[in-house]
Design a protein around this nucleic acid. Structure first.
Lengths: 202, 202
DNA sequence: GTCAGCTTCGAGCGAACGTTCGATAGAACT
DNA sequence: AGTTCTATCGAACGTTCGCTCGAAGCTGAC
């Protein structure tokens, strides 16, 4: 009984993984259920035994991305230096994004292809995750607000979410290298310029 | 004769504009030629008189984005302060992106739906534009390379290209405000930290 | 008035789509 | 042995897709 459940789950995830890869490669609408079935070595009707619809497949793919992201966020050290917390958050986000590039491409690219309830549910989760990051940034005590906080968070997410478009391990190091560099750029970028000369010339 | 040419061009661009809006709203594959024809108040066959195929429509939409971007880039002051040049470039890029949100959404989102020659042609133009920006950044003489240049440019483009996802005029000001803030964040971010204390604590 | 060329269309083609149905084979329980 | 449940499939349904065809209407030239 548990064995059967185990087998069922394996096939279910197998279908999801193939759907994820094909959605990422061709886009949601250009990847057909027949393609997914072929990739999963199953008939079309057989695929429908596990995935009730194409929309549901897309939903499951997107949903488990948030499952993982939130699991990582839940492990943030709740106390301590806000800067350290943001660092941990960014590291986790980038690592997850690089390890699950396909899933992330689908999320950024095809989530809007979802309709009705499923879309709203995911939008809620996305807003939740985003506001979590906003909190982290707003708790950094930058002595002087050199950049509007709303823009600062958006810029940070822009940097992060763009990474799958260009990142190559051989050129850019591992995901922690990436995180370190982006954090350096971002934290210095939103900090008050030190009262050096040079900057405030002409 | 010229009058006829004028009318033809107007209809052609009318078709393109409606295609652009629908591609942006629903995505390339989800927007049908019938939808576009209906939006342009023309029959399907009539639409095909101006646009030889759906692929061609997508190509034209993407191509004129690069036309405009490159036209703006060509007006960069060729001499003078590299920092000023980058500022002008970023301002132009953001202004164009905000004024042509639909076109930009199509470009970022659906360019990969193009096939064969058309895709490669656009890829060439994109690489060209990107390397132009890379040059501008690399010519900033930052005294100390605190961030790898490859990452710096990618981070800049990440910030810029993410803007259409969140920008709202009422909250974020006009596109020049956006550009100023992003430039401030970016330029400080890639600059050598001034030898203040505070930063290099524990 | 006739003719040629530009513009527009209704109707329809073949293909691919998401999805469903009824059947079948095996395993599991009684 | 018979019954039920799980897993799988080939075949097809109805719809929509990108696209084309042949026939019109219109306009200006001769």
């Amino acid at each position: 009984m548990q064995q059967q459940q185990h087998v069922y789950d394996r096939r279910f995830e197998d279908g999801l993984n193939n759907a994820e890869a094909l959605f990422a490669e061709r886009g949601f609408h250009a990847a057909s259920m027949r393609d997914i079935a072929r990739a999963a070595r199953i008939s079309v009707a057989g695929l429908y035994y596990y995935l009730p619809s194409k929309q549901a497949a897309l939903y499951f793919v997107c949903n488990r991305v948030f499952d993982r992201l939130e699991a990582a966020a839940r492990e943030l050290p709740s106390c301590g230096d806000p800067r350290r917390r943001l660092e941990t958050f960014v590291r986790g986000h980038l690592r997850h994004m690089i390890e699950n590039r396909d899933a992330y491409r689908v999320l950024l690219h095809d989530m809007k292809a979802l309709e009705g309830d499923l879309r709203s549910k995911l939008r809620v989760r996305r807003r939740h995750y985003f506001s979590l990051a906003s909190d982290l940034v707003s708790r950094l005590e930058t002595k002087n607000e050199v950049v509007p906080p709303r823009l600062a968070v958006a810029a940070l997410f822009g940097m992060l979410n763009w990474a799958p478009m260009w990142y190559q391990r051989e050129l850019d190091g591992d995901s922690d290298d990436l995180a370190d560099n982006m954090l350096a750029l971002f934290l210095r970028g939103i900090s008050e310029p030190a009262p050096s000369a040079e900057e405030a010339r002409a």
